[in-house]
Amino acid sequence: MATQPRPAAQPGRLLWRVGEVFEVVEETPTTKSLVLSVPGWEGHKAGQHVDVRLTAEDGYQVQRSYSIASAPEDERLAITVDRIEDGEVSPYLTEDLMAGDGLELRGPIGGYFVWERGLGGPLLLVAGGSGVVPLMAMLRHRAASGSGAPAKLLFSSRSQEEVIYRDELERLAEADEKLEVVHTLTRSQPEGWEGYARRIDEEMLREVAPSPSEEPLTFICGPTPLVEATAAALVELGHDPAGVKTERFGPTGG
């Protein structure tokens, strides 16, 4: 692997590095986590992302951003990638990349949509689909750091099979009475499902979210309609807009 000396004149510059895929974990039929060993990685905060760059043999390159899924405490860096059917990058990452392959990346990036133990709680996390990834980093950090901050995750998925991190979320919630995970399944529900079965709306948030007087730290990540609807409903319910942080993604070429 080629390395490049850090230019002393530009402290804090984000250099491209080559990580090695340690493990590929199937999360759902379309979603995989890439667990990476990244030499010289200087750590990150929960909620940050990395830029990934792919280079073909003739020098053709493409870049995309992916949220970091692992906690700062974890030994390796993980990203979770949802396969976009006609995408250029995500099919390569989810189907071609194998343990032992190199992956070029730089980061961590972003300093606003982040949560650290010292910020306390209560935490309100609202996710749609793979928007759960940066929020999972927060929940993993919360567990690994022994934060006792009360936390709720409201997680919208199309079906039970498409719930990313389903088992781990269940384990985390079972082991921690201050963590509550609430699912809504918008397209299909398993037999006997008694949970929410519709898109996130104001009524659901009134039932699930801490009251505005508790001043929750709110992080919302998902497709734009979910983020817009959730943020607007929370403001309507009386939450301070300054306490609501949003991050979005859309299938724009993934």
């Binding site: 692997m1 080629a2 792919l54 073909a56």
Partner: peptide, 28 residues
């Protein structure tokens, strides 16, 4: 730039017809 790094097996779609309009690292 990590000199000489190639993503194994990556070919890419090269679906950017307006390459002169596209700054480095961007896609349409």
């Amino acid at each position: 730039m990590v000199e000489g790094f190639i993503s194994r097996g990556f070919r890419g779609r090269r679906r950017q017809p307006n390459n002169a309009q596209l700054p480095p690292g961007q896609y349409e």
